[in-house]
Design a protein around this nucleic acid. Structure first.
Lengths: 137, 137
DNA sequence: TCCTACGATGGACGGAATCCAAGTCAAGAA
DNA sequence: TTCTTGACTTGGATTCCGTCCATCGTAGGA
């Protein structure tokens, strides 16, 4: 985490209390908060923080490649701080819970040239869906 | 297409002109319209059709498994009528164009048991991203 | 310590989708 | 064929997410 703040400072980021709090809220594995959830948690520590600032900061973190934007359900986007290590997502179709997963193989390699339609393909994003233990009950 | 209408009738669907037009608009490969686009095209044939009806009908078609909901960009959901043959999507990060693709291999098999966290995993959805020939210029 | 450009604020705004009460009509019954 | 009824449609209000903007505040260099 402080690594992150160091890196950001190194990139010329002005280190405000708001940005610090947002960065602190976004820490850990299997963290996939919506912007509103980030705002709520940030507001616990810094009550006056505005939603616009949270959106701005999240957008900047995404642009800098420190955070990944995930939209698994067509509802609110979620923000995944685990951007250093590439991974995919496993989503419960019952309750919406999300886990980071590390599948074998390289999905990019599975797309043959004649299936690329001349595109310069650079990324493959996999979303696994199923029921979590609680929802499978 | 008329296959689809037959199948729907078989499931006890009341066949209204609105539903017929929506089903007709959604036909073909590489078709990925937003609800608004479906509404616009449907309205060319049936000017009084309402947005709510389009949303209702699309939702029913998705529930019945006749149409797949795709949200590749966090903006409006898109509706893919090519639900019979399993496929994945290739999206241009420049212009948003979408193509249906058929990768090799089975991504489901690439998720080892210890990476499933007890989930009953039933589906793997792959989104390839890159630049289309036009955008790569 | 002072300056100033960058960042924060919050309220207005816009797009996407859902909800709801009232009106309409497809399709089975007679 | 006509009648009847519950399923379907309508459009306007509403909610949810997210962006925009004019103004105010402040981090950090001089």
């Amino acid at each position: 985490m402080s690594d992150l703040l160091e890196r950001l400072r190194g990139r010329g980021w002005r280190l405000t209390s708001q940005r610090r709090v947002v960065a602190e809220v976004l820490d850990g594995e299997h963290v996939h908060l919506t912007a509103d959830e980030v705002h709520a948690r940030a507001a616990e520590r810094l009550p006056e923080i505005s939603r616009a600032t949270v959106y701005n900061t999240l957008g900047e973190l995404v642009t800098l490649g420190e955070v990944i934007e995930v939209s698994t359900d067509g509802r609110a986007k979620r923000y995944d701080p685990n951007a250093h290590r590439p991974h995919q997502h496993l989503v419960c179709t019952g309750c919406g819970a999300i886990r980071d997963v590390h599948p074998l193989g390289n999905p990019l390699a599975d797309l043959p040239a004649e299936q690329r339609f001349g595109f310069t393909v650079s990324q493959a994003e996999v979303t696994y869906r199923g029921l979590c233990p609680a929802c499978a009950g």
